[in-house]
Design a binder for these strands. Structure first.
Lengths: 304, 304
DNA sequence: CTCAATCATCAGTTAAGCTTATGAATATCA
DNA sequence: TGATATTCATAAGCTTAACTGATGATTGAG
């Protein structure tokens, strides 16, 4: 039994018109074509659906039952077509972002995205780089913002902006460092507050200091950059603060002070990545533009 | 843009398998056939639905959107097929009945019908003969119980049982008549209580008395037989009481007494009618049996 | 650099679907 | 009651859609 949409469409026309010839006109086929489809449908369901009279047709009880179901089917088909017809590309865009970027970039970016067509049905996922890349490869994400070059060949990256690392801590601690030649390599590993393993920010911080996780004795494994900043603000140590987070974190954690490294400043490149097989109707480019612009807004004002 | 069920079915298989070749196996076609349908679907909706990679496929945002809709469509199709597959003939049976039969026949018949397959989805409509026949012809009813032979050629009747007319009134009035030779023609038209015009019972009563509505001066136009019996019980006149109603009405209206006419007793034939084009898988015969049996139960015990 | 996957494309065949023409049954009208 | 005009069903021929089997292009892995 294989019921086709065509059969249902024809059947509904017949049910409405109560008349083969008229129904055939409505759906723009000849009457025999309609007859054949109805017969095929009746054969498929195994029962008579209409009673043929000399004056036209009348639905059988089974026919009425089918009519209701058929209407549901057609309604869901209509929903489908409408879902595709809406302006823009029509689908839900799955966007991933690493936790050391998301809370700072999104507040500025979201309003702009919402205003544009991209944000019409945007879903966000915050996770660490590896996870994001996995989901991207698997197709559960369409694009992701990360801060380390992807090592996979099926994924391509578009640079958004460069995010410089500042050194942040309590005012007292920072003051101790001021005036001296500040070099990442000279920092005391024991004073360094780091994010949990898996966060690229922690790894990158260690890298610019020429350290690895073993050499750092105070690995707090803090869950979020925000927490880290609050710890640093209370004098518990120093942390690398990406410039993108500067404004928000200094506002949120009183006492937190940040200084800039001398050139060449350590930095991370924030990237928008997608599968190489993805072809966008321009939304990728558009998304790059929006994120790049809002990102650069966040890093362009450079206090001290 | 003409999307077919086949395309949706194939697309869902592809979405689940993430792999043309595997999906093609699942749906038992060759891989090119699947490729073609997917391409046709993409063409129909105007956008790419899957990204082709070397390792398989991944849905685009639009693809995911379509997937959800497609599932809905398939779900409603499943509902349709299931609705047809249920035991019995599967449809709602529309049964009409005239008001001078329904309240007496239904209480006994309904439990039996519900137990059988017919009553699984039975809808009732109470109306006067003409209306019932109109709706039957129009296909809004499948069968109807009436008490006068249908005058239409597209409708055929199956006799259920014969329902004899008794004469009912207050005990005093009936006592006056007892002993005398009781002839319908001898009844005083002025004493006769009749149902509203359109009820066949009223017309039939007049007919057996050799009267018409003009000659009857006390046409109350009562709405229901039940009301009529209560009026008669209070001595306001005499009425024809179909035997089918006897037990219920004498129980409900204290003081109501009925006597039987001498043979040949006036009577009405209760019929089950259907369109001549209706062909039942036996449910019509079954319905006849049930109604006939319960009807005869009601008229078989004959108190004086 | 070759091999083994992937999906796409092409040519030929089969099946489904439509149209035109015709047939059987039934109601309408004279 | 017979002629006519409805109704829907059926049949033959054609057109288009759909599938198969073979081959090609691309890409990742050894």
């Amino acid at each position: 039994m294989n019921i086709t949409l065509r059969q249902l469409r024809y059947f509904l026309a017949l049910a409405e018109q109560g008349h083969f010839t008229r129904a055939a006109e409505v759906i723009h086929v000849t009457q025999p074509a309609l007859s054949m489809q109805i017969r095929a449908l009746e054969e498929a369901v195994g029962t008579r659906l209409v009673e043929r009279t000399a004056a036209g047709v009348v639905l059988t009880p089974q026919g009425r039952a089918l009519e209701n179901h058929a209407r549901q089917v057609m309604a869901s088909m209509a929903g489908l077509e409408q879902g595709l017809r809406r302006p823009g590309q029509g689908g839900r865009l799955m966007l991933g972002m690493i936790p050391t970027v998301a809370p700072y970039l999104l507040p500025s970016a979201l309003p702009i995205l919402r205003a544009s067509d991209i944000g019409r049905d945007l879903h966000l996922r915050e996770a660490q780089t590896d996870r994001l890349l996995d989901e991207l490869s698997a197709g559960r994400l369409d694009v992701a913002v990360i801060a380390s070059p992807p090592d996979r060949h099926d994924i391509v990256a578009q640079p958004l902006f460069t995010d410089q690392f500042l050194l942040a801590g309590s005012e007292a601690r920072i003051d101790q460092l001021r005036g001296r030649a500040l070099e990442p390599h000279d920092l005391d590993p024991g004073n360094l507050l780091l994010l949990d393993e898996g966060h690229c920010l922690g790894d990158q911080a260690l890298e610019v200091c020429g350290l690895n996780r073993r050499s750092s004795r105070l690995d707090l494994g803090a869950a979020s950059l925000s927490t880290l900043c609050r710890l640093a603000a209370q004098g518990m140590g120093l942390t690398f603060l990406p410039e993108i987070a500067l404004r928000q974190e200094t506002a949120a954690a009183p006492g937190l002070t940040a200084i800039r490294f001398p050139d060449p400043q350590p930095a991370r490149d924030v990237l928008l990545v997608r599968r190489s097989s993805t072809e966008s109707d321009g939304w990728f480019k558009e998304l790059v533009d929006v994120l790049r612009q809002t990102g650069r807004e966040l890093v362009k004002n450079r206090p001290s």
